[in-house]
């Protein structure tokens, strides 16, 4: 029965890569909708998350369960399937967080369209670095999954600290701005949530990389534990 589990693995890997591509595109669109203040694009991001990403996640989970039931995998095959299940979940959560960012754009626009589109609403420059780093982590995590590259996976895990630091700096900056500029507090409070979402996305990228290391080496490095 196990003679074609390799084929099943390749198929599942393809599904994860496809889901990763859709999630990355949606994340990019979510960032773009915020930077360019584009509510139509934000709406599209929310719809893609609800209609496409969630459905792909369910399909992959069902496919994993089918392969597990039919092949009763062990060792590297078992680790691969467990990793696929977990990566699938992390990608879906990243999709949700991208949709959450887009949702903030829609909320701000609906509250006061003219004010939202005015120059008074300028995204602090600090966000650009955080966006770039998080998207970089996402891409490298997917690359590490495709090539089962544990060195790259470790690099991504280490980069998480940079995103955490960026979030902390943005928080301090935004909190100060909220105190100094109460008129913009609704907008700035929404940006706090965006920074939080980006930081969570980086956490999920780290989770993915930790699972890749487990898949390849059988070592659990989560919570700084190793076996």
């Amino acid at each position: 029965m196990a003679y074609n589990i390799q084929t099943e693995r390749e198929t599942l890997k393809g599904h994860i890569v496809y889901l990763g591509t859709v999630v990355e595109e949606n994340l990019q669109c979510a960032i773009k909708s915020l930077v360019e203040k584009n509510p139509d694009l934000a709406y599209q991001v929310v719809q893609t998350d609800r209609c496409e990403i969630d459905a792909i996640e369910i399909d992959i989970e069902q496919e994993c369960l089918r392969v597990m039931a039919l092949h009763q995998p062990v060792a590297c095959d078992l680790r691969f399937l467990v990793t696929v299940l977990k990566v699938n979940m992390d990608l879906e959560r990243i999709g949700d967080l991208a949709a959450k960012i887009a949702d903030k754009v829609l909320l701000l626009y609906k509250a006061d369209p003219a004010y939202f589109l005015s120059d008074a609403m300028q995204l602090p420059e600090m966000f650009a670095g955080m966006f770039d780093k998080t998207v970089w982590m996402f891409r490298q995590a997917m690359e590490a999954f495709i090539s089962e590259d544990t060195d790259l996976a470790y690099k991504v895990c280490l980069a998480d600290d940079e995103v955490d630091l960026a979030k902390r700096a943005i928080y301090e900056d935004l909190e100060e701005s909220i105190m100094n500029d109460p008129a913009r507090q609704v907008y700035l409070a929404k940006l706090l949530s965006v920074a939080r979402s980006m930081e969570r996305i980086a956490d999920h990228c780290t989770n993915i990389c930790e699972d890749i290391i487990y898949m390849a080496q059988g070592r659990i490095i989560r919570h700084n534990l190793s076996q």
Binding site: M1, A2, Y3, I5, Q6, P73, V74, A75, C76, D77, L78, R79, G218
Partner: peptide, 17 residues
């Protein structure tokens, strides 16, 4: 042995390769 075998030969056997 069934999750992280030490030896490649064991892994190849128990995974049916």
């Amino acid at each position: 042995l069934f999750t992280v075998p030490e030896r490649q030969e064991t892994e190849e056997y128990i995974t049916g390769r």
